[in-house]
Deep mutational scan, measured.
Amino acid sequence: NKFNKEQQWATYEILNLPNLNEEQRKAFIDSLKDDPSQSANLLAEAKKLNDAQA
C-alpha cells in the first residue's frame, strides 16, 4: 500500500538526517507510526529541522 512505502521511505530518510538528535529522530518516527498518511509532511518537517541545526 502507498502509505506503507511512503512511511518506509520517510523513516529511512529521517534515520539518515545527520543533524537530528536521537530524541528528535525518535519523535518523528513515532509520529510516522501513529499516522503514516502524514509521512511526506513529517519528512519535510524533519528536513527543515535538520537544516536549521546544521
Score class of each variant (00 low, 15 high):
residue 1 N to A: 02
residue 1 N to M: 03
residue 1 N to R: 03
residue 1 N to Y: 01
residue 1 N to E: 10
residue 1 N to F: 01
residue 1 N to K: 04
residue 1 N to T: 04
residue 2 K to L: 08
residue 2 K to Q: 15
residue 2 K to F: 11
residue 2 K to P: 14
residue 2 K to A: 15
residue 3 F to L: 15
residue 3 F to E: 15
residue 3 F to V: 15
residue 3 F to D: 15
residue 3 F to A: 14
residue 3 F to P: 15
residue 3 F to T: 14
residue 3 F to R: 08
residue 4 N to D: 15
residue 4 N to T: 12
residue 4 N to Q: 11
residue 4 N to L: 12
residue 4 N to F: 13
residue 5 K to A: 12
residue 5 K to T: 14
residue 5 K to S: 12
residue 5 K to Q: 13
residue 5 K to N: 12
residue 5 K to D: 15
residue 5 K to W: 05
residue 5 K to H: 07
residue 5 K to L: 03
residue 6 E to H: 06
residue 6 E to F: 14
residue 6 E to P: 03
residue 6 E to S: 04
residue 6 E to R: 02
residue 6 E to I: 11
residue 6 E to K: 03
residue 7 Q to A: 15
residue 7 Q to K: 03
residue 7 Q to N: 03
residue 7 Q to H: 05
residue 7 Q to V: 15
residue 7 Q to M: 14
residue 7 Q to W: 15
residue 8 Q to N: 03
residue 8 Q to F: 08
residue 8 Q to E: 13
residue 8 Q to K: 09
residue 9 W to L: 13
residue 9 W to E: 13
residue 9 W to I: 13
residue 9 W to R: 11
residue 9 W to P: 02
residue 9 W to K: 06
residue 9 W to Y: 12
residue 9 W to T: 05
residue 9 W to S: 05
residue 10 A to H: 06
residue 10 A to E: 02
residue 11 T to K: 08
residue 11 T to P: 02
residue 11 T to A: 15
residue 11 T to I: 13
residue 11 T to H: 14
residue 12 Y to Q: 08
residue 12 Y to R: 06
residue 12 Y to D: 08
residue 12 Y to I: 06
residue 12 Y to K: 05
residue 12 Y to M: 08
residue 12 Y to L: 06
residue 13 E to S: 10
residue 13 E to T: 13
residue 13 E to R: 10
residue 13 E to N: 08
residue 13 E to A: 13
residue 13 E to M: 15
residue 13 E to F: 13
residue 13 E to L: 13
residue 13 E to Y: 13
residue 14 I to P: 00
residue 14 I to L: 05
residue 14 I to G: 01
residue 14 I to W: 02
residue 14 I to T: 01
residue 14 I to Y: 01
residue 15 L to K: 07
residue 15 L to W: 12
residue 15 L to Y: 09
residue 15 L to V: 05
residue 15 L to P: 01
residue 16 N to E: 05
residue 16 N to W: 06
residue 16 N to I: 07
residue 17 L to R: 00
residue 17 L to N: 01
residue 17 L to W: 01
residue 17 L to Q: 02
residue 18 P to F: 07
residue 18 P to K: 09
residue 18 P to L: 04
residue 18 P to E: 07
residue 19 N to T: 03
residue 19 N to Q: 04
residue 19 N to Y: 14
residue 19 N to H: 12
residue 19 N to R: 04
residue 19 N to D: 06
residue 20 L to W: 00
residue 20 L to Y: 00
residue 20 L to M: 02
residue 20 L to T: 00
residue 20 L to S: 00
residue 20 L to G: 00
residue 20 L to V: 02
residue 20 L to I: 08
residue 21 N to P: 03
residue 21 N to H: 10
residue 21 N to S: 13
residue 21 N to Y: 12
residue 22 E to A: 08
residue 22 E to I: 09
residue 22 E to W: 15
residue 22 E to H: 10
residue 22 E to P: 12
residue 22 E to F: 12
residue 22 E to D: 12
residue 22 E to K: 12
residue 22 E to G: 09
residue 23 E to W: 14
residue 23 E to P: 06
residue 23 E to L: 11
residue 23 E to N: 12
residue 24 Q to W: 02
residue 24 Q to N: 02
residue 24 Q to H: 02
residue 24 Q to F: 02
residue 24 Q to V: 04
residue 24 Q to L: 03
residue 25 R to S: 04
residue 25 R to E: 01
residue 25 R to P: 00
residue 25 R to V: 06
residue 25 R to Q: 07
residue 25 R to G: 02
residue 26 K to N: 08
residue 26 K to Y: 09
residue 26 K to F: 10
residue 26 K to A: 10
residue 26 K to P: 00
residue 26 K to Q: 10
residue 27 A to H: 10
residue 27 A to P: 02
residue 27 A to K: 09
residue 27 A to R: 14
residue 27 A to W: 15
residue 27 A to Y: 15
residue 27 A to Q: 11
residue 28 F to D: 00
residue 28 F to V: 02
residue 28 F to I: 04
residue 28 F to E: 00
residue 28 F to W: 02
residue 28 F to K: 00
residue 29 I to E: 02
residue 29 I to Q: 04
residue 29 I to W: 04
residue 29 I to T: 05
residue 29 I to N: 02
residue 29 I to L: 09
residue 29 I to G: 02
residue 30 D to G: 11
residue 30 D to F: 14
residue 30 D to V: 14
residue 30 D to E: 11
residue 31 S to V: 09
residue 31 S to N: 10
residue 31 S to A: 11
residue 32 L to F: 03
residue 32 L to R: 00
residue 32 L to N: 01
residue 32 L to A: 04
residue 32 L to T: 02
residue 32 L to S: 02
residue 32 L to G: 01
residue 32 L to Q: 03
residue 33 K to A: 13
residue 33 K to D: 08
residue 33 K to S: 12
residue 33 K to P: 02
residue 33 K to N: 13
residue 33 K to T: 13
residue 33 K to M: 14
residue 33 K to E: 13
residue 34 D to H: 10
residue 34 D to M: 13
residue 34 D to G: 09
residue 34 D to S: 13
residue 34 D to Y: 11
residue 34 D to F: 12
residue 34 D to W: 12
residue 34 D to E: 13
residue 34 D to N: 11
residue 35 D to W: 09
residue 35 D to M: 08
residue 35 D to A: 09
residue 35 D to K: 08
residue 35 D to T: 08
residue 35 D to V: 06
residue 35 D to P: 01
residue 36 P to A: 07
residue 36 P to D: 03
residue 36 P to L: 03
residue 36 P to G: 06
residue 36 P to T: 03
residue 37 S to E: 11
residue 37 S to T: 09
residue 37 S to Y: 06
residue 37 S to K: 08
residue 37 S to G: 08
residue 38 Q to R: 10
residue 38 Q to F: 05
residue 38 Q to T: 06
residue 38 Q to I: 07
residue 38 Q to N: 05
residue 39 S to L: 11
residue 39 S to M: 08
residue 39 S to T: 08
residue 39 S to R: 05
residue 39 S to Q: 04
residue 39 S to V: 12
residue 39 S to P: 03
residue 39 S to E: 03
residue 39 S to N: 05
residue 40 A to V: 12
residue 40 A to D: 05
residue 40 A to T: 09
residue 40 A to M: 15
residue 40 A to N: 07
residue 41 N to Q: 10
residue 41 N to T: 11
residue 41 N to G: 08
residue 41 N to W: 15
residue 41 N to M: 13
residue 42 L to T: 10
residue 42 L to K: 06
residue 42 L to Q: 04
residue 42 L to E: 02
residue 43 L to Q: 03
residue 43 L to R: 04
residue 43 L to S: 03
residue 44 A to N: 09
residue 44 A to K: 10
residue 44 A to W: 13
residue 44 A to F: 12
residue 44 A to G: 07
residue 44 A to D: 08
residue 44 A to E: 11
residue 44 A to V: 10
residue 44 A to L: 14
residue 44 A to Q: 08
residue 45 E to G: 05
residue 45 E to S: 12
residue 45 E to L: 12
residue 45 E to N: 08
residue 45 E to K: 14
residue 45 E to M: 14
residue 45 E to F: 13
residue 45 E to I: 14
residue 45 E to W: 14
residue 46 A to N: 00
residue 46 A to Y: 02
residue 47 K to Q: 05
residue 47 K to S: 05
residue 47 K to I: 11
residue 48 K to R: 12
residue 48 K to M: 12
residue 48 K to Y: 09
residue 48 K to D: 06
residue 48 K to V: 08
residue 48 K to E: 07
residue 48 K to S: 08
residue 48 K to F: 07
residue 48 K to T: 09
residue 48 K to L: 12
residue 48 K to G: 05
residue 49 L to F: 05
residue 49 L to Q: 06
residue 49 L to W: 06
residue 49 L to D: 02
residue 49 L to T: 06
residue 49 L to I: 09
residue 50 N to V: 01
residue 50 N to Y: 01
residue 50 N to H: 02
residue 50 N to A: 04
residue 50 N to M: 01
residue 50 N to Q: 02
residue 51 D to K: 11
residue 51 D to S: 12
residue 51 D to Q: 12
residue 51 D to P: 01
residue 52 A to Q: 11
residue 52 A to W: 12
residue 52 A to G: 06
residue 52 A to E: 12
residue 52 A to N: 09
residue 52 A to M: 11
residue 52 A to R: 10
residue 53 Q to K: 04
residue 53 Q to E: 04
residue 53 Q to L: 06
residue 54 A to M: 09
residue 54 A to K: 05
residue 54 A to D: 07
residue 54 A to I: 08
residue 54 A to G: 12
residue 54 A to Y: 11
residue 54 A to F: 09
